[in-house]
Write a protein that binds this DNA or RNA. Structure first.
Lengths: 188, 188
DNA sequence: CTGATGACCAAAAAAGTATTTTAGTCAGTT
DNA sequence: AACTGACTAAAATACTTTTTTGGTCATCAG
C-alpha cells in the first residue's frame, strides 16, 4: 500500500470537509491510520501536503481537458466543452469550494497561494490552446496570456460573481454567453 | 456655509486617509470644526454618512459619463471614452481605493455594502446605454444587464486583477483589449 | 427659542493574560 | 530501517481588563 498516497487521500478528505486551518496533522494521521511522524517522512510540512494535493488536482484537470480536446477538432467547440468540463470538475471538487470559502472568510495566506497557483495552471493550459488556435488561424491574432486570463475570469464572473446579486445562470447559458461575447463579439 | 456639506467633506477626507473603521466620529467633528452632536443633526449614523458620500461619488461619475456621451455619437466610441473617464475618476478617488483595501483586509460589512451598491449603480448606468445601443442597432441583441455586468467586470479584471501577477496594463491598452474581445470578437 | 455642543454612557473594540491546541521533532519501538 | 506517538516550543484560542467610540441629551450661546 502506497503510504504517501494514503496520507494524501486522508488529508484531501479532511481539507475538503473542514478546510485547511481547521485540519490538524493529528486528524490526518488518525484518518490515514498512520503515526503522525510518518506524515513527515513524505511531506516536509502541512503546506507542502496541501501543495502536493493541489498538484494532483491540476493534473486531473489536465487529463479531463485533454480528453475533451480529442473529441473536438475546432478551438471554439473545444473551448465550449472544455470549460463545461472544468465547471463540472470544480463543482465536484468540494476541496476547491472549501478552500475558496476559507480564503474569503479568513484570508489564510497558504490557501491564497495555493488557489492562485491553481488559477495560474488553468490559465497556462488555456494559453497553450489559444496559441495553438492562433497558429491554425481558428481565431484572430491576440495575446494568448491576456486572452486566457480574461476567458478564465469571465467564467468566474458568470458562475461565481453574478449569483451574488442575481439568479445563478444555468451552465449552458454560461457557455452560450462566453461564446457570444468572446468569439462572436457584439459588433452587428 | 452649508454645514452638511462641510461634514461630508471632512468625513470623505478622513475615510480616504484612514478608511471607514479607523475614522472616528470625533475625528470627523474635529476636521469639520463642528461639535460631534452636530453630525447627528444631518446623519442618523456613521453608515449613513458614508452612504451619502458614496451617493455623491455616484452622482459625480454620472456627470462625467454623461459629458462623454455628448461628445461621442456611436456606442463603441462612447464606450471607449466613458470607461477611460471612469478609470481616471477611479484613480483620482483615493476613497474608493482605500475602501477596497479595507474590504480586502478586514471585510467590513458596511464597506462591502457600499462598494457593492457603487458597482450596481455603475452597472445600471452601463445597462441603460447598452439597451439604447441595441435599440439603435449599434450592437447585437443581447441581455443588457448581463452585458453591463461583464463589461464592468472585465475592466476590473484588466485593471486590478491582472496586475496581481503581471505588469500593469497601460490605460489605452485596456481600452483596446475590451474593444477587441467585447466588440469585435475573436472569430477571424 | 433654536441650533449647536461636548460631557456622558453603554456597547464594542483592543490590549493583556491565561489556557489550550498544534505543527513539527526525535528517542525509542517494532 | 521504517514507523510511531510522547514531547515541546510556538501559535491559536478563550477569557479578563482596559480603552475607545458611536450615539444621546441636558445645557448653552446667540
Amino acid at each position: 500500500m502506497d503510504r504517501k498516497q494514503l496520507i494524501m487521500d486522508a488529508a484531501a478528505q479532511s481539507f475538503s470537509q473542514f478546510g485547511y486551518k481547521a485540519t490538524t496533522m493529528d486528524q490526518v494521521s488518525k484518518i490515514a491510520r498512520v503515526g503522525k511522524g510518518t506524515i513527515y517522512l513524505y511531506f516536509s510540512n502541512k503546506e507542502e501536503l496541501l501543495q502536493e494535493i493541489m498538484n494532483n488536482v491540476v493534473h486531473e484537470m489536465h487529463v479531463v481537458a485533454l480528453k475533451t480536446i480529442e473529441e473536438n477538432q475546432s478551438f471554439i467547440d473545444y473551448f465550449h466543452e472544455a470549460v463545461q468540463g472544468m465547471l463540472k470538475f470544480r463543482e465536484q471538487h468540494e476541496l476547491i469550494i472549501k478552500l475558496s470559502q476559507e480564503l474569503k472568510d479568513f484570508g489564510t495566506p497558504v490557501v491564497y497561494e495555493v488557489l492562485q497557483s491553481l488559477e495560474e495552471a488553468i490559465c497556462f493550459f488555456i494559453e497553450e490552446k489559444i496559441a495553438h488556435a492562433i497558429k491554425k488561424k481558428e481565431i484572430k491574432d491576440c495575446d494568448p496570456k491576456i486572452t486566457a486570463f480574461l476567458m478564465f475570469k469571465m467564467y468566474i464572473n458568470l458562475v461565481n460573481d453574478w449569483k451574488v446579486r442575481h439568479q445563478p445562470l444555468p451552465k449552458d447559458q454560461v457557455a452560450a454567453l462566453i461564446n457570444l461575447y468572446f468569439i462572436e463579439g457584439l459588433a452587428p
